[in-house]
Design a protein around this nucleic acid. Sequence first.
DNA 1: GGCTTCGTACGTACGGTGTACGTCCCCCTC
DNA 2: GAGGGGGACGTACACCGTACGTACGAAGCC
Lengths: 219, 219
Amino acid sequence: MSPMDVPRPALTRDRIVSAAIGLIERRGAEAVSMRAIAAELGVGVMSLYNHVPSKSALLDGVAERILGGVEFEAAPGEHWTDQVRGQCRAFRQIALHYPRSTLVVMTRQLRAPSGLRPVERALATLREAGFAGETAVHVFRAVIAYLTGSLLREVGVTPALAPAPRDPAALEDAVAAGFPHIAALAPVLGRCDHAAEFEFGLELLVRAIEALPRDAAQV
Amino acid sequence: MSPMDVPRPALTRDRIVSAAIGLIERRGAEAVSMRAIAAELGVGVMSLYNHVPSKSALLDGVAERILGGVEFEAAPGEHWTDQVRGQCRAFRQIALHYPRSTLVVMTRQLRAPSGLRPVERALATLREAGFAGETAVHVFRAVIAYLTGSLLREVGVTPALAPAPRDPAALEDAVAAGFPHIAALAPVLGRCDHAAEFEFGLELLVRAIEALPRDAAQV
DNA sequence: GGCTTCGTACGTACGGTGTACGTCCCCCTC
DNA sequence: GAGGGGGACGTACACCGTACGTACGAAGCC
């Protein structure tokens, strides 16, 4: 009959994940509910559970999908420090592309390959740069920590101190409350060029890593 | 009458905040509900709203209380690099003292003085070390990013890659899936001494900051 | 072709959430 | 004692995740 002539595209885990991502980016992570996703797909709520065991697993799928979209391939002859920079910037790019999903992606610990591929690439770069196993992991974890903090700030999960002292009243309050340095730096604290801050800290880290002793320096 | 002879301690914003912190630490942040807090205090749910305008404001209070408990005073003659280290470690101490509240504290942007005091102390240290305003803020933000990422990992909000390859099967999977470096480093990746990792990255950052040009070096 | 089987979509229902609203009662002031 | 104000409380609403039972359409078998 006619309902068969307009078959909706089959309900699928992939379509559900896509709808969830769209919903998060459009209306925020806390607006995501199974009902909202079902409505978006024009489908009953419980039909989702035929393809996804739980909301938590669905969010795992969101993280996996987003993480899988990063481009991690390095230019062949690139210096290892530039490879590190490139991998960090690749991470930043996806975070900016899916800003409101960033916290979701970062808080899910996934064992799936899409989560391990960036780890593999980073460790490869560091070991080829001449860092022994133990040191490579230390460096890796330090960089990850910086990345996590930077990106969570940039997407607004964590405060940036940015729009605070826009008005002079807050500034007066600051100096009156015994915060002279904050008052003095208010114009600088009021702005936050995320790209510049990211590069500043990244350069700081890369230079520090470069100064570390290596077992077998190459290139 | 007799109900007056056993007067419950007056319901108070402070007591509500304390109950919330206790609940978060005992049963996790997602177990916090107005009903659970009220039950903990032996009180009706809606009575809470006489002292707290909303759950969000209550969580602000939690963040404020915890942040206010940090000890930021520096030893007088201390070198500025040791002051930086000390302030970072102070932050880590509260994070470890309230592990399950850490995400709540970090994701709330508060304008209250208790949130600004650590900022003021950090900026004072950096400016006294001879960093001009702009640079001081850049350095401050880089350190904050590292702190955020480190502590969120340590309290378990963000994955640590730690207990993954406990069993040899996962390791075999890793090498089979084309992750040779992960496989090779599995024993190192399997452990994560958070204190050591924290100090490693902190040292990396402090040395890098020390190498930065300063307008007026002192001490 | 007829029958069975199975996967998927769906409606209903339960226990949870934050909180708006109205009521009641105790205590303080006059 | 009378009046008033503030805090404690119960109820109610809209929403959440999801367990459970049902109904229907396609596929396999005789």
